[in-house]
Nucleic acid binder design. Structure first.
Lengths: 96, 96
DNA sequence: TAATTTGGTTTATAAAATAAACTGATTTAT
DNA sequence: ATAAATCAGTTTATTTTATAAACCAAATTA
């Protein structure tokens, strides 16, 4: 009846991050922060979780002299996101 | 960009309960328990939260000699559910 | 009449989300 | 030159949440 929801994606901020990365395929920390409205601390923690799950790849480089964290969705992450969206439908489609 | 998600509905079990009640408009505790696969304890707690939020109405009656807890979605609950589904779309629709 | 089942509630614990505080380097202002 | 402010994050602490375990009362079955 109801498909289980991946707890890693069933989180407002992590879902927003993944949603963002699905469409842009590359985003810097401050951009994600701005788009999601998250605090830096919260974002940092959630990016770690997504990264540890292999849903995103995090590259730490420099932009001029300043540190720069770039995030990209991975194939596993894309698959998980699609699976989550699919599972959600079992909760949203009225009367089947 | 991303619409906030009602934390009361952004919960696997509570969402399942609401989804169920949207389509049936009346369900007994054991039925909800069976359909969602939840433990009785967890379900009891989550029904309380939905009830306290005014999203569902809980009627405690008897079915013969046995206690019977009947749940119905309220207009406020239906509105909240629809709002939640709508907000979710801002996370799921690829490239706005 | 003892054990089991039904229909739950209450309580305890583990996990999660989130913000606050902090670090270290870079600009900018004085 | 140096003090203050900003940038780019991380770490830690706190609150909230989800969940299961333990419990309770009544009814049913053995």
């Amino acid at each position: 009846m109801f498909q289980p929801l991946d707890p890693l994606l069933h989180s407002e901020l992590r879902l927003a991050v993944m949603s963002l990365l699905v469409s842009v395929e590359e985003a810097e920390f401050p951009y994600i922060k701005e788009q999601t409205g998250a605090t830096a601390g919260n974002l940092s923690v959630q990016l770690d979780k997504l990264s540890e799950a292999g849903y995103i790849a995090v590259e730490k480089t420099y932009k001029g002299k300043r540190p720069c964290t770039i995030c990209r969705i991975t194939p596993a992450g894309l698959k998980a996101f699609e699976g989550y969206v699919d599972a959600l439908k079992s909760y949203l489609e009225i009367s089947n």
